[in-house]
Write a protein that binds this DNA or RNA. Structure first.
Lengths: 202, 202, 202, 202
DNA sequence: AATGAATGAGAGTTCATTCAT
DNA sequence: AATGAATGAACTCTCATTCAT
């Protein structure tokens, strides 16, 4: 009778440990030894469960993307109007309120930075960005339709909003102390509101 | 016969070599060895001309910031109104037109990403961001005053615009293929235009 | 099947290797590479077992100090009077008799010399000297009390004796061939004897 | 007409620069670059005037030994009795009074430490020690003869005193803060006085 | 599955020495 | 004589990865 494999749970533990270390100390400090220590495991075990360090990172990106998707879906389910859903989305991504998961945000920023550096991370990151872009476009499209406008402008606005979000994330980590406090959610909402208002209604 | 000093030009060469390596391979790969090879120099010589790696990076950031400043001033010189100057600025930063210097942009993005990872780089990067925020705030303040509005809103808008710019930079390197082509300059101009219009005039 | 830890013995091996290299080639030549080679280990392993080179040296100093302490205690155990204990001490430190451990003496001298050069080594060395000074002062204090004198003069004599011992050590390594053979133990005993005799009894 | 060579003076300057750097920062920090900077010369010039770094050190040792010899001769010339000469000597070597030349003492200590490490320095250092031993023996011999004793014991006492002096020097640099203030001259004088008194007169 | 020791390449940095000018 | 750039080897230390147990 073979012993029950615990690989899945160990892998999850390790991924979570990477997230924690990245959020706390940055990717540079996230050595295998550090991850192992965070997870309370022996260094050698990491490479038993993962081919290499890269693989852990890839799976972490996937996990974070899934988490963001789920969080939005939760919020969106309770929203009555398209615009309420949009606000819920922006609040979920940029707000400092409950469920803000700074750990996940910090890790996400680190990964965004890492995507600039490593092709393999970049490939994964791009998929997550593309998915996010689709989601945001759909959200904005609904808003436009609800106000009787053409949904075609949604893509353009979505790209701008996404850039603003990505920038707010990055700057929160790289230059947080020189930016105003809590500007991001407000700026994004304002941008969206003004833009939507400016689109002519049919 | 004393030998003629060539430190200044060597230092410039080394800084340029760092920029090239960063743009091509990322900061991670920008080892002293790599910089030396790129510049065609012996590794030890790098440390003859610079105290440490950090110092080269600081000067590169300064160079890039100066370059951006100059490019803006060139364009702005021909601008008649505050708004024209603002457009010139956004075009200089985000536009794909002539003088776009993809090498410099790439290096800048890499440094921004590295700022997320390393405190030392972050410290340098923050200064540049703070300076940029000041410049942009002043620019927007002029626009507001020109239209008879209170300049107080400039800071808020500047932060949002800067985030959008930083995000556009980062995404151009980390997820360029999934973003619309050339959206950034347009989105930023639209955002600014709408925002300025919405501010009540005295 | 977890692997059995061997850290303790490896650390001891490395410390011993440092002692051997120092005794044979001096501290200057005691590079991590040299230590590793002496111990028959890979260089990287040294840093697996020790945080840095400094830590090895600290532990070596401690080991040598402990060794000296033990040797003294062994000899002193058989001593009946304070003066006999003092002689035992001086013999343990300066004598050429059995258990003289030239390896340890050589290492100690090298470390003393290095203490002159490097602040980090100096800090360690100072602690050992301070401890030795205390021990010697106590020993001399007992002698003074035993002869009915005031123990207050012990500190002064201890300092002089310690200097003589340190000098004898240093000269044995740096100018051994020009000094008389085995003068040190005799000179120290004579100095102590004359000094003690000169202190007035109550 | 050949230009007048200034080699001798340049060499002296460089040796003095080494002494200054050693006294201030220790031998370890006494790189060629540091010496050159201290002397206000170009690094390359050092190797024009000296074959290598070692050679400078050797000449510095010689200079310091000569200086010590001269200083003693000056003092001795004014001393009336052998014992006065001895006191003058010990004061000249260990005292903190005028003409103490802490620069020279510090450099001398560093060199003593270096003699432990490097054979070439050791060879030079030994000669200086031997010379010193002879001088001190002669001095003590005169004292013994003056009091009608056999001068044969002088060598033994000289060795002990020299060790004490060397140790006081070394400890002043390596563990100065844990030793009593100004103990050395007093201890040496006491040692000598007691010893001389103990030698039977004819 | 798991442990933890071991490896070896590569990082930044220092520096005695050489060399073109 | 003198300059100062240039070299290259050596240093300490880090770390992804492998391996014996």
């Amino acid at each position: 009778m073979p012993r029950k494999p615990n690989t899945d749970c160990r892998r999850a533990e390790i991924i979570t440990a990477l997230q924690a270390v990245i959020a706390r100390q940055g990717y540079e400090k996230a050595s295998i030894q550090a991850i192992a220590k965070e997870a309370g495991l022996a260094p050698g075990l990491i490479h038993y469960h993962f081919k290499n360090k890269q693989e852990i990172l890839v799976l972490l990106v996937r996990k974070l993307a899934d988490y963001g998707q789920q969080r939005f879906e939760q919020i969106a389910a309770q929203a009555g109007s398209p615009e309420a859903r949009l606000h819920a989305y922006l609040e979920a991504r940029l707000g400092l309120g409950e469920g803000a998961a700074p750990d996940a945000v910090a890790a996400w920023v680190m990964i965004g930075a890492e995507a600039v550096r490593q092709k393999e991370v970049r490939d994964i990151y791009q998929q997550a960005v593309a998915q996010e872009l689709l989601l945001l476009t759909a959200l904005l499209g609904e808003c436009l339709i609800a106000q009787g406008s053409d949904a075609g402008k949604a893509a353009e606005l979505a790209a701008g909003l996404l850039a603003m979000m990505a920038g707010a994330y990055q700057l929160s980590s790289s230059a947080g102390s020189v930016m105003p406090v809590g500007y991001a959610a407000h700026a994004a909402k304002t941008y969206a509101r003004l833009y939507l208002d400016a689109v002519p209604t049919a």
